[in-house]
Design a protein around this nucleic acid. Structure first.
Lengths: 297, 297
DNA sequence: AATCAGAAAAAAATCCATCATTTCCATAAT
DNA sequence: ATTATGGAAATGATGGATTTTTTTCTGATT
């Protein structure tokens, strides 16, 4: 790593890389029903890839995905120059001229993979749909990296048809995570975290009672004014307004599925004054409670 | 569940099931390049499925996979009777006459899925290769169940083309785990071999504490200098640098998915000085912690 | 070849200070 | 009940100076 001033293509301390043999590609990957859809041809990891540089005036026949862990780099494609920073991906479609390289001050650390197959162009396109400037819109997720490492580790063990099929099926999963960010992240993580969603959960639980604004506020350990303010910016509604919406929603359910009178209904939702309830309902739903019941029963 | 003596096909307390609408199958799943390879038509979960019973004298056009979590059941296919016990899978190829049902004393709890697609017959065959009596040779692995639940949860949210592609690409991963048991289980097990991956595992476990270099070294029974040296050649990073990277990655997750303050975060990662943490983060990720949070939330 | 000890050089951690930004409350107006 | 506003307090970002730890290097030992 001491050849300052030179651009190099391979050889970094700690690097790992696997290039699938031509024979394996020809004999198995392009023939097997599973792998011929999508298969990896090369995969690797370059830590602190000083002077890393690649120039391909005619592109290559594989699609390329690069994931930058650290440091920075750049990509030049279609006369566009794209900076690449930590926790960003880039995708380079097959047969498109391009150049890329590590940044000079802080060279990037990257995972990369080349792939082909009958479905590859289509998938690449889907990823590009979720991208800006060849960078998919994604946030950090270590599950994605685990998939990558799983792939790498299995390939390292050899090229049995088993391993190859297995690896490329996981690769599908990996690719899907680039196409559909939100789904990939959604699983269970972002529930019950912040003050606002906690408050909303509380509203849902206490839908049958009267709760004053200051109770919500003190539940959240915030002053009334401040609580109000952030609630509004987060949800677009002020707290009580939101709470009332929930109540009206509940009312709709009761109207459709029970025979409760409007008065009973109002009381069960903690709204003492049935007339007030009726007016509120009408204002929100466009029709009065009984009208609504007629229409929806 | 009180209809003793009767065999029933649907309806168990706590059951979950999704049947993809015919229209979705016809309009999207069989047409999209990705999904037409493999797509799910039905998926579900039946807890304690008392009197569960299905008889299909001509089979059905989808392949079926059933995973038994608890209790027991049986399958009759090709004149063979197969007992099904906890943590076992069974696979039933399309168009083969069969019957199956829950055991009478301890009825099974099952996950199940029906699938079709151009590749489905081939995949089914591969799974059968790894099976005895229609039972894939597998040991318990909860990652597999997680994949299943991920699939279920995403389907539950709707049938957008995004969700459908995503789900069926994970399904690929799931299926591959049935074909290649050893590989699927291998991921973390084989890590325990060399000193470096042991150290990294330790880092991951102790991500919340301060650990000095000499502790890592003595943990590995190596001198500080030697440990440092081999760590660097293997990973491309020096030990503490690597450890810090892990911490920053963790920080990214917390920033995206929680409302923890930067100070709390720093402390939770064993970095007493929040200012130092902030600087380190910025240096590595290119943006300060709160900037990062804004961008990725 | 693998390992260690020791020392110099490099980098990381700590501490302190400063400035910018955000959060928060009290008050008043709507 | 909600929104607007000003000022106080807390939090966060950044820089420099200093101390501590880590990294790297060399040569010696097993």
């Amino acid at each position: 790593m001491k050849n300052k001033g030179l651009r190099k293509r391979e050889g970094f301390e700690g690097q790992r890389l696997i290039v699938l043999p031509k024979k394996v590609i020809a004999d198995f990957l392009t023939r097997d029903l599973v792998t011929k859809q999508i298969y990896i041809t090369d995969i690797g990891y370059y830590p602190k890839a000083e002077f890393h540089y690649a120039e391909r005036p005619a592109g290559i026949s594989q699609h390329i995905i690069i994931y930058c862990v650290e440091g920075s780099g750049w990509l030049e494609i279609n006369k566009k120059r794209v900076d690449v920073n930590p926790s960003e991906f880039i995708i380079i479609p097959a047969n498109i001229p391009h150049r890329y390289g590590a940044g000079s001050s802080k060279p990037w650390t990257i995972y990369w993979v080349h792939f082909k197959g009958e479905l590859s162009a289509y998938i690449t396109e889907l990823i590009l749909n979720n991208s800006e400037n060849y960078k998919p819109n994604l946030s950090y997720n270590d599950q994605r990296i685990k998939l990558f490492e799983d792939i790498y580790n299995n390939l390292e063990k050899g090229y049995s048809s088993d391993a190859l099929r297995y690896v490329n099926m996981i690769f599908s999963h990996f690719l899907s995570s680039l196409i559909y960010e939100e789904k990939f992240n959604d699983t269970d993580k972002k529930k019950g975290k912040n003050i606002i969603s906690l408050s909303i959960a509380m509203m849902q639980k206490k839908i049958h009672s009267v709760i004053k604004l200051h109770e919500f506020a003190s539940f959240s350990n915030l002053s009334v004014s401040h609580f109000s303010a952030i609630f509004k910016t987060e949800t677009g509604y002020s707290p009580i307004e939101y709470f009332n919406h929930l109540k009206i929603q509940k009312a709709c359910q009761y109207l459709s599925f029970t025979d409760m009178s409007v008065k009973e209904l109002a009381i069960s939702l903690g709204i003492e004054d049935q007339y007030y309830f009726s007016r509120m309902f009408t204002k929100l739903m466009g029709s009065s409670p009984t009208e609504y019941r007629k229409k929806n029963k």
